[in-house]
Simulated scan of single mutants.
Amino acid sequence: MFEGPDLDAAERRVDDWQAGFEQRAAQARELAARLARLSGAARSDDGLVTVTVGAGGGLTGLELDEGIRRQPATETARQILATLAAAQADLTAKATVVTDETVGADSETGQAVIASLTR
């Protein structure tokens, strides 16, 4: 079926395919490891609320300055939610950079990762 130059060309194509697959797998492993180490943080404009989120976007840290006592609880709640959203946006921005650096933001994998972060 395959002989001579045809066999050599087929072997090269298989080798190239395997090398490409191995490279993409290594990039995906690096992406997963780097994403797992990320966190995001934000501080309210007045500095009274500081929020940190982990790699999954969940709240991992909340600091309230003593000055928070001088404002209504509804304002504090609003600031916490707004600062949480800002910390999650910071995480998404960092994850987008990591994705671009590893698998490429325009790749199929990169687009899927970024889309999952913006949901």
Score class of each variant (00 low, 15 high):
Ala93His: 06
Glu101His: 03
Arg13Phe: 01
Ala42Glu: 06
Gly61Pro: 01
Arg43Ala: 12
Thr92Pro: 00
Arg78Leu: 06
Gln23Tyr: 00
Ala115Arg: 15
Ala93Ser: 14
Ala73Trp: 04
Gln71Met: 14
Asp45Glu: 14
Ala32Phe: 05
Asp65Leu: 03
Gly20Gln: 01
Val14Asn: 05
Gln18Asp: 09
Thr118Gln: 15
Leu35Arg: 10
Arg13Glu: 14
Val53Asp: 05
Thr92Asn: 08
Val14Lys: 12
Lys94Leu: 03
Glu30Arg: 15
Ala19Lys: 08
Leu117Asn: 14
Thr109Asp: 12
Glu108Trp: 08
Gln111Lys: 14
Ala105Thr: 01
Ser39Val: 03
Gly20Ile: 02
Glu30Ser: 14
Glu108Leu: 13
Ala93Gly: 08
Val14Glu: 10
Val51Met: 08
Trp17Glu: 14
Glu11His: 07
Ala73Cys: 05
Gly40Thr: 07
Val53Glu: 03
Leu7Val: 00
Arg69Phe: 01
Glu63His: 15
Ile68Phe: 02
Gly20Pro: 00
Ala10Glu: 09
Arg78Met: 03
Ala95Asn: 00
Ala41Gly: 13
Glu3Ser: 15
Ala86Pro: 01
Arg13Ala: 15
Ala115Tyr: 00
Gly110Pro: 09
Arg37Met: 07
Asp15Ser: 15
Ala115Val: 01
Val103Glu: 00
Ala89Asp: 15
Gly47Gln: 10
Trp17Val: 04
Thr74Cys: 01
Glu66Gly: 15
Ala41Asn: 09
Glu11Ile: 13
Thr102Gly: 09
Arg37Phe: 01
Leu38Gly: 12
Ala36Met: 08
Ala95Thr: 04
Ile80Leu: 02
Glu11Ser: 11
Val103Met: 12
Leu38Asp: 12
Val49Arg: 07
Pro5Tyr: 10
Phe21Thr: 10
Met1Asp: 11
Arg69Tyr: 04
Glu3Ala: 10
Ser116Ile: 06
Gly47Ser: 08
Ala55Asp: 12
Ala112Arg: 14
Arg12His: 06
Val14Phe: 11
Leu35Ile: 08
Arg70Cys: 08
Asp15Ile: 03
Ala32Ser: 13
Met1Trp: 02
Gln88Gly: 11
Leu59His: 08
Ala87Tyr: 06
Leu81Asp: 06
Thr96Ser: 09
Gly61Val: 04
Ala42Ile: 09
Gln111His: 11
Ala112His: 07
Glu101Gly: 05
Asp90Gln: 00
Asp46Tyr: 06
Ile80Glu: 01
Trp17Phe: 12
Gln111Val: 11
Ile68Met: 12
Phe2Asp: 13
Ala42Val: 07
Ala36Lys: 07
Leu31Asn: 12
Val53Gly: 08
Gln111Thr: 13
Arg69Ile: 10
Ala87Val: 05
Asp46Ala: 06
Gln88Met: 06
Gln71Ile: 12
Asp16Val: 00
Gly40Lys: 06
Ala26Arg: 11
